[in-house]
């Protein structure tokens, strides 16, 4: 079972989070821990995260990834997290198995893009965008464990605030991670 390995015992563990191809629901769930967030802020330092606005991930003890891998940017961020985080956690259905975005996998990429940018309702200037600034799409949306090694998995769409809290407190205290029945669900 995974236990916390912190580089510098005196420092607070650093935690980074990112949302790849997800809906920010898992992050919202994290905020749903309500007043416990104050405890959390006392216990950890946040590195890159939508909660901090730090844009690049530094060396961290824990990385939480929401969302699957759908484009080149997702790939880059995920790999950077894997390089910098001692423990990487797949948070939520999309990170775990692709989730709802992976429902596009039933279609070829051309169909998806044409539906959105060519034939779709309300499209004014039909044409698949080619701007090099836009991350390229992968032909399918993949769960993150198909790209990098994942150390722990928190299923749910999203995992409930309690599930996240159970995980975080166990991880912080170095206890084995165990959930009550109602905290593990895939939806």
């Amino acid at each position: 079972m995974l236990s916390r390995e912190v580089s510098d015992v005196s420092a607070k563990p650093r935690v980074a989070t990112a949302s790849l191809c997800g809906c920010f629901g898992c992050h919202t769930s994290l905020l749903d821990i309500d007043e416990r967030i104050l405890q959390l802020v006392d216990l950890v330092d946040f590195d890159r995260s939508p909660l901090t606005d730090i844009k690049t991930v530094g060396d961290c003890d824990l990385g939480l990834i929401e969302g699957g891998v759908a484009n080149t940017e997702n790939l880059e961020v995920l790999r950077a997290f894997r390089r910098h985080c001692r423990t990487l956690v797949a948070v939520g259905a999309c990170a775990v198995n692709g989730g709802v975005p992976a429902m596009r996998n039933a279609l070829a990429l051309r169909e998806c893009l044409e539906e959105s940018y060519v034939r779709g309702v309300g499209v004014y200037h039909p044409g698949i965008p080619r701007d090099p600034e836009i991350p390229l799409l992968l032909d399918r949306v993949h769960p993150i464990h198909e790209v990098v090694k994942v150390d722990y998995v928190l299923p749910g769409c999203p995992p409930s605030a309690d599930t996240l809290w159970t995980f975080l407190t166990a991880w912080l205290s170095g206890q084995p991670i165990a959930f009550p029945y109602t905290q593990i669900h895939y939806d």
């Binding site: 775990v96 198995n97 692709g98 989730g99 769960p143 299923p155 769409c157 029945y181 669900h185 939806d187």
Partner: peptide, 25 residues
């Protein structure tokens, strides 16, 4: 895609998966 499935919560496959401790596929 359990979040998009009407049977979720009363699905036997899902429930068996919980029972055997499946966190990911």
């Amino acid at each position: 895609v359990c979040p998009a499935c009407e049977r979720s919560g009363s699905c036997q496959l899902q429930a068996v998966a919980y029972y055997v401790g499946m966190l990911s596929p």
